[in-house]
Design a protein around this nucleic acid. Structure first.
Lengths: 209, 209
DNA sequence: AACAAAATTAAACAACTGTTTAATTTAAAC
DNA sequence: GTTTAAATTAAACAGTTGTTTAATTTTGTT
């Protein structure tokens, strides 16, 4: 994973790019949009990042670099298996929640052949995350708390997918559940939705059918 | 919900548009792309649909109109509650699986302020679907099979979200699970992934914590 | 065959796209 | 204070964008 030097101006551009990419998509956002909102000259994006494509690459690296660390720390913690899984879910939701913007872009752009190169770093991240999840589940299985026949790669889709589908349909759920302010929306995620996901995963991990 | 007359040429355009929108996004696809692949003149899209925006509206209506009917039919069927939920999940996965393209576009485009009008029909569809799900769960609760404290609006995010996250990360899972052909991929969805989701929802609906 | 409506076309439109250039300003080093 | 490198700018570049126009062809009706 390549290292990129980030000065204040670069970070300013990245933050603006995240918001705009999230609102209007990668293709839907022009460099002129970005430069206008970041109050810089059009040429500065090319000057700093080389191209719009490489700006996206830098953005992905910038926004995902510390998730890996957080999961590895969780692995070392001394917790009951079910508590560890619950904390794993909280970390996922929190990280993605804080970086809703970029994850939305990734989510859509990931399958585009054009964007293949930008997504390699993200694939590596996912592989690492899966290893962490595997370890946590294995710990629970060793203690006899979790079932042995769990398809671990399908746990992440349920955790992240549930959260994401909720977030992607935000206008629908805001109306349905009367989450009139941004605070109420975020609060619903932090409490009810997180609890729902934790309950779901727990049921799946320990329930005997 | 407005009715749109569809002749062969229109359908041809819609099918091409779905594929291209899915591959490259709404903004990433040009009318020239569409007309080239559909082997028609550039002006025909405006001639038939009025604008690129209204083409998207027509596409959404065209691809989602029969899901509603399928769910309403399921409601009437005489099945055990758990069987009904399993069938509900199958319908969801099958419908979205057959229309992967357009649902991917919707999923991303849904939050864009630019696309607000195109998505109204889709919001109505979701409201109807939720009502069907509520009825099915209520039937199971009346028979004493399902728990009473289920947050029904969060079931759909788990069902669709899990499937969608899997599908959106297709390249990752293809590599991870060695799903080398399209047939193997689709087969994995039809068997393992569907089973995983059914198992998850069942555990959530009947598991006492 | 004659007419009218619908379908199809190539060309043009103005606006926008990402990127590059060359000139100018700012900052740092000596 | 002079020199060198970095940062910033406006302007131009060559393409592409969605849409409209006006002319032509095809189709269906009488």
């Amino acid at each position: 994973m390549s290292y990129i030097e980030l000065n204040d101006k670069k970070i300013q551009i990245l933050d603006v790019a995240e918001k705009l990419f999230s609102d209007k998509g990668f293709e839907g956002t022009s460099i002129r949009d970005i430069s206008k909102h970041a109050k810089i000259n059009i040429a500065m994006v090319s000057y700093y990042f080389g191209s719009k494509e490489r700006l996206l690459e830098a953005l992905i690296l910038y926004k995902t670099s510390d998730l890996k660390l957080q999961l590895e720390n969780l692995l070392q913690e001394n917790l009951e298996p079910i508590e560890k899984v619950n904390k794993l879910i909280e970390i996922y939701i929190n990280r993605i929640s804080c970086n809703k913007g970029i994850f939305r872009v990734i989510h859509f752009e990931i399958n585009s052949e054009k964007r293949e190169k930008s997504m390699i770093a993200f694939t590596e991240l996912k592989k690492g995350n899966l290893k962490s999840v595997e370890s946590i589940i294995a710990q629970g299985q060793a203690k006899g708390v979790f079932r042995k026949d769990i398809i671990i790669p399908l746990l992440t889709p349920t955790i992240i997918g549930t959260f994401f589908h909720f977030h992607m349909n935000k206008p629908f759920f805001v109306e349905l559940l009367n989450l009139n302010t941004e605070e109420m929306y975020n609060n619903y995620i932090k409490t009810s939705l997180t609890k729902h996901i934790q309950q779901t995963i727990k049921a799946l991990l320990v329930y005997e059918n």
